[in-house]
Design a protein around this nucleic acid. Structure first.
Length: 200
DNA sequence: CGCCTTGGTCTTGGTTGGTC
DNA sequence: GACCAACCAAGACCAAGGCG
């Protein structure tokens, strides 16, 4: 129900006021919905301490059940989609992509995908490989495209395509004279790398 | 007789203004 | 920043009446 939607928003933001702003209703309306829910379940859902609020144990349980409910709803949508033509398929796809992938791989893939599935809403989460994997684990995204092999469990992965990483250096560098370099030759010099967590 | 239409009531989801 | 009181509007529900 809408009351649950309000509760979910407040629990996420941990603020009545912020929830009222994201839901585009007034703050008293938020209070009212939460109070009605608390009366309905005969328990308090938030701990009000002065200026801030926290979830009570009961509130945390409700929050968890709402998330499970949302997952069920999503499964239902998926299940029903198997009966539909691609052009009729509806849903949300939250796609994560690492920096390089988002820049070079995703655009043509997405444009083809949108042609085939016009009613699927796509949101793109764009961070480095490690953050994308974390987002996948915490279910912020449904699918991630990253570089390298994932070392994290609980994630199913599949080879998508092969890319090549090429080191470059100044022509004045001593390395430039050597036609065949070993990884050991590089370890002794200063190298510009991507940040920690980058697949590259 | 079965099928609308109508009018009243209840519920739900809102608001404003003021208080703690 | 949260809550309360008073009030408003839309929609659901339901009983009663009109009509082919």
């Amino acid at each position: 129900s809408f009351k649950h939607k309000v509760f979910f928003e407040v629990a996420q933001q941990l603020s009545f006021t912020k929830a009222s702003q994201t839901l585009f209703i007034s703050q008293p309306a938020i209070s009212k919905h939460i109070r009605l829910l608390e009366e309905e379940y005969k328990t308090s859902l938030f701990e009000r301490k002065g200026n801030s609020i926290t979830l009570t144990e009961e509130g945390a349980i409700l929050f968890d059940f709402i998330i499970r409910g949302q997952e069920l709803e999503k499964q239902l949508e998926l299940e029903l989609n198997t009966f539909r033509e691609p052009s009729q398929i509806k849903g949300d796809l939250r796609l994560g992509a690492s920096t390089t992938v988002a820049l070079y791989i995703v655009p043509p893939v997405l444009s083809g995908f949108r042609k085939k599935y016009p009613d699927v809403k796509i949101s793109l989460f764009n961070r480095n490989s490690e953050s994308v994997l974390m987002a996948l684990k915490s279910k912020e995204i449904d699918l991630g495209i990253v570089e390298g092999r994932s070392k994290i469990g609980q994630v199913k992965s599949q080879h998508f395509l092969t890319d090549e990483v090429v080191p470059v250096c100044s022509t004045r560098s001593s390395l430039a004279k050597n036609p065949r370099l070993d990884i050991k030759d590089v370890s002794s010099v200063q190298v510009a790398l991507r940040e920690r967590g980058s697949g590259t």
